[in-house]
Design a protein around this nucleic acid. Structure first.
Lengths: 199, 199
DNA sequence: GTGGTTGCAAAGACTTTGCACGCTA
DNA sequence: TAGCGTGCAAAGTCTTTGCAACCAC
Protein backbone atom coordinates (compact mmCIF):
# COMPACT_ATOMS: atom_id res chain seq x y z
CA UNK A 1 0.00 0.00 0.00
CA UNK A 2 1.16 3.50 0.62
CA UNK A 3 4.14 2.09 2.32
CA UNK A 4 6.20 4.92 1.00
CA UNK A 5 4.13 7.44 2.87
CA UNK A 6 4.47 5.56 6.06
CA UNK A 7 8.19 5.16 5.75
CA UNK A 8 8.43 8.82 5.12
CA UNK A 9 6.42 9.67 8.17
CA UNK A 10 8.57 7.34 10.17
CA UNK A 11 11.75 8.90 8.90
CA UNK A 12 10.44 12.30 9.78
CA UNK A 13 9.50 11.10 13.19
CA UNK A 14 12.94 9.69 13.76
CA UNK A 15 14.63 12.83 12.60
CA UNK A 16 12.52 15.04 14.78
CA UNK A 17 13.51 13.00 17.72
CA UNK A 18 17.16 12.55 16.89
CA UNK A 19 16.62 8.87 16.53
CA UNK A 20 18.45 6.87 13.96
CA UNK A 21 17.12 5.15 10.94
CA UNK A 22 18.34 1.59 11.09
CA UNK A 23 17.51 -1.35 8.90
CA UNK A 24 16.04 -3.14 11.89
CA UNK A 25 13.61 -0.35 12.62
CA UNK A 26 12.65 -0.14 9.01
CA UNK A 27 12.08 -3.81 8.75
CA UNK A 28 9.93 -3.87 11.84
CA UNK A 29 7.90 -0.93 10.59
CA UNK A 30 7.35 -2.52 7.21
CA UNK A 31 6.37 -5.85 8.61
CA UNK A 32 4.01 -4.28 11.09
CA UNK A 33 2.19 -2.38 8.37
CA UNK A 34 2.18 -5.33 6.08
CA UNK A 35 -0.17 -7.09 8.41
CA UNK A 36 -3.73 -6.01 8.68
CA UNK A 37 -4.35 -8.08 11.70
CA UNK A 38 -3.42 -7.69 15.27
CA UNK A 39 -0.19 -9.24 16.34
CA UNK A 40 1.93 -9.68 19.40
CA UNK A 41 5.54 -8.68 19.76
CA UNK A 42 6.47 -12.29 19.85
CA UNK A 43 4.60 -13.01 16.64
CA UNK A 44 6.25 -10.19 14.79
CA UNK A 45 9.57 -11.40 16.04
CA UNK A 46 8.75 -14.83 14.74
CA UNK A 47 7.81 -13.55 11.32
CA UNK A 48 11.00 -11.62 10.95
CA UNK A 49 13.01 -14.58 12.07
CA UNK A 50 11.23 -17.05 9.83
CA UNK A 51 11.17 -14.86 6.80
CA UNK A 52 14.87 -14.76 6.88
CA UNK A 53 16.79 -11.74 5.82
CA UNK A 54 18.74 -9.57 8.17
CA UNK A 55 18.10 -10.65 11.68
CA UNK A 56 16.46 -8.55 14.28
CA UNK A 57 16.72 -9.41 17.91
CA UNK A 58 13.81 -9.87 20.16
CA UNK A 59 14.87 -6.95 22.29
CA UNK A 60 14.93 -4.67 19.30
CA UNK A 61 11.48 -5.79 18.30
CA UNK A 62 10.10 -4.93 21.70
CA UNK A 63 11.98 -1.65 21.80
CA UNK A 64 10.89 -0.60 18.37
CA UNK A 65 7.30 -1.64 18.82
CA UNK A 66 7.17 0.41 21.95
CA UNK A 67 8.64 3.33 20.07
CA UNK A 68 6.12 2.99 17.27
CA UNK A 69 3.31 3.12 19.76
CA UNK A 70 4.73 6.23 21.32
CA UNK A 71 5.07 7.75 17.92
CA UNK A 72 1.49 7.01 17.10
CA UNK A 73 2.22 4.56 14.32
CA UNK A 74 0.87 1.61 16.17
CA UNK A 75 -1.64 1.15 18.86
CA UNK A 76 -1.51 -1.49 21.50
CA UNK A 77 -4.48 -3.38 22.75
CA UNK A 78 -4.84 -5.83 25.55
CA UNK A 79 -6.57 -8.83 24.10
CA UNK A 80 -7.88 -9.67 27.49
CA UNK A 81 -6.29 -13.03 27.03
CA UNK A 82 -3.04 -12.00 28.48
CA UNK A 83 -1.38 -10.78 25.39
CA UNK A 84 -0.58 -7.30 24.29
CA UNK A 85 -1.62 -6.89 20.70
CA UNK A 86 -0.39 -4.33 18.24
CA UNK A 87 -2.03 -2.98 15.15
CA UNK A 88 -1.05 -0.21 12.84
CA UNK A 89 -3.09 2.89 13.07
CA UNK A 90 -2.13 5.06 10.12
CA UNK A 91 -4.68 5.02 7.43
CA UNK A 92 -7.62 3.53 9.10
CA UNK A 93 -8.77 5.74 11.85
CA UNK A 94 -9.53 4.76 15.34
CA UNK A 95 -11.89 1.87 15.84
CA UNK A 96 -13.17 -0.32 18.58
CA UNK A 97 -13.11 -4.09 18.85
CA UNK A 98 -15.35 -7.07 18.90
CA UNK A 99 -13.55 -10.08 20.30
CA UNK A 100 -14.88 -13.55 19.86
CA UNK A 101 -14.40 -15.44 23.10
CA UNK A 102 -14.66 -18.68 21.23
CA UNK A 103 -12.46 -18.56 18.16
CA UNK A 104 -10.53 -15.49 19.16
CA UNK A 105 -11.34 -13.57 16.05
CA UNK A 106 -11.15 -9.82 16.31
CA UNK A 107 -13.49 -7.61 14.33
CA UNK A 108 -13.33 -3.87 14.22
CA UNK A 109 -16.00 -1.26 14.12
CA UNK A 110 -16.66 2.37 14.72
CA UNK A 111 -19.76 4.16 15.71
CA UNK A 112 -19.77 7.89 15.80
CA UNK A 113 -22.73 7.96 18.08
CA UNK A 114 -20.90 6.01 20.72
CA UNK A 115 -17.89 8.23 20.40
CA UNK A 116 -20.08 11.27 20.79
CA UNK A 117 -21.70 9.92 23.90
CA UNK A 118 -18.33 9.16 25.39
CA UNK A 119 -17.33 12.75 24.94
CA UNK A 120 -20.55 13.87 26.44
CA UNK A 121 -20.04 11.73 29.51
CA UNK A 122 -16.57 13.12 29.97
CA UNK A 123 -17.57 16.70 29.55
CA UNK A 124 -20.30 16.32 32.08
CA UNK A 125 -17.71 15.19 34.58
CA UNK A 126 -14.95 17.61 33.75
CA UNK A 127 -12.87 14.71 32.52
CA UNK A 128 -10.46 15.54 29.74
CA UNK A 129 -10.70 12.64 27.33
CA UNK A 130 -7.50 11.61 25.64
CA UNK A 131 -8.15 8.12 24.49
CA UNK A 132 -10.59 5.32 24.87
CA UNK A 133 -10.76 1.62 24.50
CA UNK A 134 -13.98 -0.25 23.91
CA UNK A 135 -14.03 -4.00 23.72
CA UNK A 136 -17.14 -5.98 23.11
CA UNK A 137 -16.75 -9.65 23.89
CA UNK A 138 -19.01 -12.41 22.77
CA UNK A 139 -19.47 -14.84 19.93
CA UNK A 140 -18.85 -13.87 16.36
CA UNK A 141 -21.47 -14.69 13.80
CA UNK A 142 -20.07 -18.08 12.88
CA UNK A 143 -19.32 -19.18 16.41
CA UNK A 144 -22.72 -17.97 17.45
CA UNK A 145 -24.38 -20.01 14.79
CA UNK A 146 -22.31 -23.00 15.63
CA UNK A 147 -23.37 -22.72 19.23
CA UNK A 148 -27.00 -22.44 18.31
CA UNK A 149 -26.72 -25.47 16.15
CA UNK A 150 -25.01 -27.56 18.73
CA UNK A 151 -27.43 -26.08 21.12
CA UNK A 152 -26.15 -28.07 24.02
CA UNK A 153 -22.49 -27.61 23.85
CA UNK A 154 -21.67 -24.69 26.06
CA UNK A 155 -18.20 -23.26 25.88
CA UNK A 156 -18.19 -24.73 29.31
CA UNK A 157 -15.55 -22.72 31.05
CA UNK A 158 -16.82 -24.72 33.94
CA UNK A 159 -20.32 -23.53 33.46
CA UNK A 160 -19.84 -21.47 36.47
CA UNK A 161 -21.66 -18.68 34.80
CA UNK A 162 -25.02 -20.29 34.79
CA UNK A 163 -24.95 -20.73 38.50
CA UNK A 164 -23.65 -17.32 39.03
CA UNK A 165 -26.63 -15.73 37.49
CA UNK A 166 -28.84 -17.52 39.91
CA UNK A 167 -26.94 -17.47 43.13
CA UNK A 168 -25.49 -14.07 42.68
CA UNK A 169 -28.82 -12.73 41.79
CA UNK A 170 -27.00 -11.05 39.03
CA UNK A 171 -29.97 -8.92 38.28
CA UNK A 172 -30.87 -7.34 35.03
CA UNK A 173 -29.75 -8.15 31.59
CA UNK A 174 -28.14 -11.46 31.36
CA UNK A 175 -24.93 -9.76 30.48
CA UNK A 176 -23.03 -12.73 31.47
CA UNK A 177 -19.66 -13.69 32.60
CA UNK A 178 -16.88 -11.58 31.57
CA UNK A 179 -14.52 -14.28 32.55
CA UNK A 180 -15.81 -16.78 30.09
CA UNK A 181 -12.39 -17.90 29.16
CA UNK A 182 -10.48 -17.64 32.31
CA UNK A 183 -11.80 -20.49 34.26
CA UNK A 184 -10.27 -21.67 37.41
CA UNK A 185 -6.73 -22.51 37.79
CA UNK A 186 -5.16 -20.32 35.30
CA UNK A 187 -6.79 -17.14 36.04
CA UNK A 188 -5.47 -14.35 34.08
CA UNK A 189 -2.88 -11.83 34.39
CA UNK A 190 -2.44 -8.77 32.48
CA UNK A 191 0.15 -6.30 32.87
CA UNK A 192 1.86 -4.21 30.49
CA UNK A 193 4.06 -1.34 30.65
CA UNK A 194 4.50 1.55 32.83
CA UNK A 195 4.99 -0.09 36.04
CA UNK A 196 7.27 2.77 36.77
CA UNK A 197 4.39 5.07 37.31
CA UNK A 198 2.80 2.65 39.61
CA UNK A 199 2.60 4.42 42.82
CA UNK B 1 -22.82 -3.75 54.34
CA UNK B 2 -24.81 -6.78 53.47
CA UNK B 3 -21.80 -8.89 54.05
CA UNK B 4 -23.98 -11.65 55.33
CA UNK B 5 -25.76 -11.89 52.01
CA UNK B 6 -22.53 -12.09 50.18
CA UNK B 7 -21.09 -14.74 52.41
CA UNK B 8 -24.23 -16.71 51.93
CA UNK B 9 -24.06 -16.43 48.19
CA UNK B 10 -20.47 -17.50 48.34
CA UNK B 11 -21.26 -20.48 50.47
CA UNK B 12 -23.97 -21.49 48.07
CA UNK B 13 -21.61 -21.11 45.20
CA UNK B 14 -19.03 -23.28 46.88
CA UNK B 15 -21.53 -25.95 47.72
CA UNK B 16 -22.91 -26.07 44.22
CA UNK B 17 -19.47 -26.66 42.91
CA UNK B 18 -18.27 -29.06 45.55
CA UNK B 19 -15.73 -26.58 46.69
CA UNK B 20 -14.84 -26.22 50.31
CA UNK B 21 -15.41 -23.35 52.61
CA UNK B 22 -12.09 -22.52 54.13
CA UNK B 23 -11.13 -19.68 56.42
CA UNK B 24 -8.70 -18.43 53.78
CA UNK B 25 -11.40 -18.17 51.17
CA UNK B 26 -13.71 -16.47 53.58
CA UNK B 27 -11.11 -14.00 54.60
CA UNK B 28 -10.27 -13.15 51.02
CA UNK B 29 -13.92 -12.73 50.15
CA UNK B 30 -14.54 -10.47 53.10
CA UNK B 31 -11.53 -8.32 52.47
CA UNK B 32 -12.35 -7.98 48.81
CA UNK B 33 -15.84 -6.76 49.54
CA UNK B 34 -14.65 -4.52 52.30
CA UNK B 35 -12.91 -2.40 49.74
CA UNK B 36 -14.87 -0.22 47.45
CA UNK B 37 -11.93 0.52 45.26
CA UNK B 38 -10.12 -1.49 42.69
CA UNK B 39 -7.25 -3.54 43.91
CA UNK B 40 -4.64 -5.92 42.58
CA UNK B 41 -4.01 -9.42 43.79
CA UNK B 42 -0.76 -8.28 45.24
CA UNK B 43 -2.45 -5.50 47.15
CA UNK B 44 -5.03 -7.74 48.65
CA UNK B 45 -2.30 -10.13 49.64
CA UNK B 46 -0.48 -7.26 51.30
CA UNK B 47 -3.54 -6.19 53.24
CA UNK B 48 -4.16 -9.64 54.57
CA UNK B 49 -0.56 -10.03 55.53
CA UNK B 50 -0.32 -6.65 57.22
CA UNK B 51 -3.59 -6.86 59.00
CA UNK B 52 -2.37 -9.92 60.77
CA UNK B 53 -4.65 -12.74 61.67
CA UNK B 54 -4.52 -16.11 60.08
CA UNK B 55 -2.12 -16.05 57.21
CA UNK B 56 -3.06 -16.60 53.63
CA UNK B 57 -0.47 -17.44 51.07
CA UNK B 58 0.02 -15.51 47.90
CA UNK B 59 -0.90 -18.53 45.83
CA UNK B 60 -4.17 -18.90 47.64
CA UNK B 61 -4.97 -15.26 47.07
CA UNK B 62 -4.44 -15.62 43.36
CA UNK B 63 -6.33 -18.86 43.25
CA UNK B 64 -9.26 -17.54 45.20
CA UNK B 65 -9.45 -14.25 43.37
CA UNK B 66 -9.56 -16.15 40.14
CA UNK B 67 -12.30 -18.31 41.51
CA UNK B 68 -14.30 -15.33 42.66
CA UNK B 69 -14.13 -13.88 39.19
CA UNK B 70 -15.33 -17.12 37.72
CA UNK B 71 -18.10 -17.19 40.20
CA UNK B 72 -19.15 -13.71 39.32
CA UNK B 73 -18.37 -12.18 42.68
CA UNK B 74 -15.57 -10.08 41.36
CA UNK B 75 -14.75 -8.61 38.05
CA UNK B 76 -11.30 -8.06 36.72
CA UNK B 77 -10.21 -5.05 34.78
CA UNK B 78 -7.01 -4.24 33.02
CA UNK B 79 -6.02 -0.83 34.21
CA UNK B 80 -4.07 -0.32 31.05
CA UNK B 81 -1.09 0.42 33.22
CA UNK B 82 -0.02 -3.12 33.40
CA UNK B 83 -1.99 -4.24 36.36
CA UNK B 84 -4.98 -6.48 36.61
CA UNK B 85 -7.45 -4.88 38.94
CA UNK B 86 -10.28 -6.52 40.78
CA UNK B 87 -13.46 -5.04 42.09
CA UNK B 88 -16.49 -6.60 43.63
CA UNK B 89 -19.51 -6.66 41.48
CA UNK B 90 -22.40 -7.62 43.70
CA UNK B 91 -24.61 -4.74 44.54
CA UNK B 92 -23.51 -2.11 42.18
CA UNK B 93 -24.51 -2.84 38.67
CA UNK B 94 -22.19 -2.98 35.71
CA UNK B 95 -20.31 0.19 34.97
CA UNK B 96 -17.57 1.46 32.76
CA UNK B 97 -14.43 3.26 33.73
CA UNK B 98 -12.71 6.59 33.41
CA UNK B 99 -9.03 6.28 34.12
CA UNK B 100 -6.86 9.27 34.86
CA UNK B 101 -3.56 8.83 33.11
CA UNK B 102 -1.98 11.33 35.45
CA UNK B 103 -2.97 10.49 39.00
CA UNK B 104 -4.29 7.05 38.26
CA UNK B 105 -7.69 7.69 39.76
CA UNK B 106 -10.49 5.51 38.49
CA UNK B 107 -14.00 6.83 38.20
CA UNK B 108 -17.00 4.79 37.24
CA UNK B 109 -19.98 5.60 35.15
CA UNK B 110 -22.80 4.07 33.22
CA UNK B 111 -24.70 5.29 30.27
CA UNK B 112 -27.64 3.34 29.04
CA UNK B 113 -27.46 4.99 25.67
CA UNK B 114 -23.98 3.70 25.08
CA UNK B 115 -24.97 0.24 26.20
CA UNK B 116 -27.89 0.31 23.83
CA UNK B 117 -25.72 1.34 20.92
CA UNK B 118 -23.31 -1.43 21.68
CA UNK B 119 -26.07 -3.95 21.45
CA UNK B 120 -27.22 -2.40 18.24
CA UNK B 121 -23.79 -2.63 16.70
CA UNK B 122 -23.55 -6.28 17.65
CA UNK B 123 -26.94 -7.19 16.37
CA UNK B 124 -26.21 -5.59 13.07
CA UNK B 125 -23.20 -7.84 12.73
CA UNK B 126 -24.67 -11.03 14.03
CA UNK B 127 -22.35 -10.83 16.97
CA UNK B 128 -23.66 -12.34 20.16
CA UNK B 129 -22.66 -9.92 22.87
CA UNK B 130 -21.68 -11.42 26.17
CA UNK B 131 -19.75 -8.73 27.87
CA UNK B 132 -18.07 -5.45 27.22
CA UNK B 133 -15.35 -3.31 28.59
CA UNK B 134 -15.18 0.41 28.00
CA UNK B 135 -12.30 2.44 29.29
CA UNK B 136 -11.99 6.15 28.78
CA UNK B 137 -8.54 7.46 29.48
CA UNK B 138 -7.61 11.06 30.04
CA UNK B 139 -7.26 13.56 32.84
CA UNK B 140 -9.66 13.69 35.72
CA UNK B 141 -11.12 17.01 36.67
CA UNK B 142 -8.44 17.96 39.14
CA UNK B 143 -5.54 16.83 37.02
CA UNK B 144 -7.07 18.55 34.06
CA UNK B 145 -7.34 21.81 35.95
CA UNK B 146 -3.84 21.47 37.22
CA UNK B 147 -2.62 21.03 33.70
CA UNK B 148 -4.55 24.02 32.46
CA UNK B 149 -3.17 26.12 35.22
CA UNK B 150 0.35 25.07 34.53
CA UNK B 151 -0.45 25.68 30.93
CA UNK B 152 0.94 22.35 30.10
CA UNK B 153 1.36 20.99 26.69
CA UNK B 154 -1.42 19.61 24.66
CA UNK B 155 -1.56 15.93 24.10
CA UNK B 156 -0.67 15.94 20.47
CA UNK B 157 -1.93 12.88 18.76
CA UNK B 158 1.19 12.21 16.88
CA UNK B 159 3.82 14.27 18.52
CA UNK B 160 3.17 13.53 22.05
CA UNK B 161 6.72 12.45 22.03
CA UNK B 162 8.32 15.77 21.60
CA UNK B 163 6.95 16.88 24.90
CA UNK B 164 7.51 13.62 26.49
CA UNK B 165 11.12 13.59 25.63
CA UNK B 166 11.63 16.96 27.09
CA UNK B 167 9.62 16.56 30.20
CA UNK B 168 11.28 13.27 30.70
CA UNK B 169 14.25 14.97 32.16
CA UNK B 170 12.43 17.56 34.18
CA UNK B 171 10.04 14.88 35.16
CA UNK B 172 7.26 16.20 37.29
CA UNK B 173 5.54 14.67 34.42
CA UNK B 174 3.00 16.60 32.65
CA UNK B 175 1.55 13.56 31.25
CA UNK B 176 1.69 13.01 27.63
CA UNK B 177 -0.41 11.12 25.29
CA UNK B 178 -1.84 7.76 25.84
CA UNK B 179 1.42 6.03 26.11
CA UNK B 180 2.87 8.64 28.30
CA UNK B 181 3.77 6.13 30.84
CA UNK B 182 4.99 3.44 28.64
CA UNK B 183 8.05 4.75 27.01
CA UNK B 184 11.48 4.02 28.13
CA UNK B 185 12.42 2.35 31.23
CA UNK B 186 10.72 -0.62 32.58
CA UNK B 187 7.76 -1.18 30.54
CA UNK B 188 5.92 -3.97 31.90
CA UNK B 189 4.91 -7.31 31.10
CA UNK B 190 1.68 -8.57 29.89
CA UNK B 191 0.79 -12.01 30.38
CA UNK B 192 -1.91 -13.81 31.97
CA UNK B 193 -3.69 -16.95 31.84
CA UNK B 194 -5.43 -18.39 28.98
CA UNK B 195 -2.09 -18.79 27.50
CA UNK B 196 -3.03 -22.35 27.13
CA UNK B 197 -5.41 -21.35 24.45
CA UNK B 198 -2.72 -19.54 22.66
CA UNK B 199 -2.38 -21.67 19.68
C1' DG C 1 -11.81 -40.94 56.18
C1' DT C 2 -11.03 -38.63 51.79
C1' DG C 3 -10.52 -35.57 48.40
C1' DG C 4 -10.32 -30.68 47.92
C1' DT C 5 -6.86 -26.96 49.87
C1' DT C 6 -3.02 -24.62 51.38
C1' DG C 7 1.88 -23.16 51.37
C1' DC C 8 6.15 -22.83 49.62
C1' DA C 9 9.15 -22.43 46.28
C1' DA C 10 10.16 -23.22 41.68
C1' DA C 11 8.51 -22.66 37.09
C1' DG C 12 6.52 -19.81 33.47
C1' DA C 13 5.39 -16.15 30.12
C1' DC C 14 6.29 -11.91 28.34
C1' DT C 15 9.05 -7.90 28.41
C1' DT C 16 12.92 -5.02 29.84
C1' DT C 17 17.70 -4.00 30.84
C1' DG C 18 23.06 -3.96 31.19
C1' DC C 19 26.95 -4.01 28.43
C1' DA C 20 30.18 -4.12 24.73
C1' DC C 21 30.48 -3.72 19.91
C1' DG C 22 28.73 -1.99 15.36
C1' DC C 23 26.70 1.33 12.46
C1' DT C 24 24.22 5.80 11.32
C1' DA C 25 24.34 10.62 10.74
C1' DT D 1 34.03 10.41 14.61
C1' DA D 2 30.51 10.45 18.35
C1' DG D 3 26.94 8.38 19.96
C1' DC D 4 22.85 5.97 19.45
C1' DG D 5 21.25 1.24 18.43
C1' DT D 6 21.67 -3.68 18.48
C1' DG D 7 22.21 -8.41 20.33
C1' DC D 8 22.53 -11.46 23.88
C1' DA D 9 21.48 -13.14 27.96
C1' DA D 10 20.25 -12.17 32.49
C1' DA D 11 16.89 -9.84 35.33
C1' DG D 12 12.10 -8.56 36.43
C1' DT D 13 7.23 -8.76 37.38
C1' DC D 14 3.13 -10.89 38.12
C1' DT D 15 0.95 -15.19 38.21
C1' DT D 16 0.66 -20.23 38.05
C1' DT D 17 1.93 -24.90 39.31
C1' DG D 18 3.89 -29.29 41.66
C1' DC D 19 3.69 -31.61 45.74
C1' DA D 20 3.25 -33.01 50.50
C1' DA D 21 1.00 -31.88 54.57
C1' DC D 22 -3.73 -30.45 56.10
C1' DC D 23 -8.45 -29.74 56.97
C1' DA D 24 -13.49 -29.27 55.91
C1' DC D 25 -17.30 -32.11 55.14
Amino acid sequence: MKQATIRKAFETFLREHSLKLTPQRMRILDRAFETHEHFTAEELYGWLRDEGGSSVSRATVYRTLSMLVDGGFLESLDSGRGELLYEHVMGHRHHDHLLCIDCGKIEEFTDERIEALQKEVCEARGFELVDHDLRLQGYCRSCSLKRTRENKKRPDPLNVQAERERSAGASTDGGGGKSARRSLGRGGAAKSAARKSKR
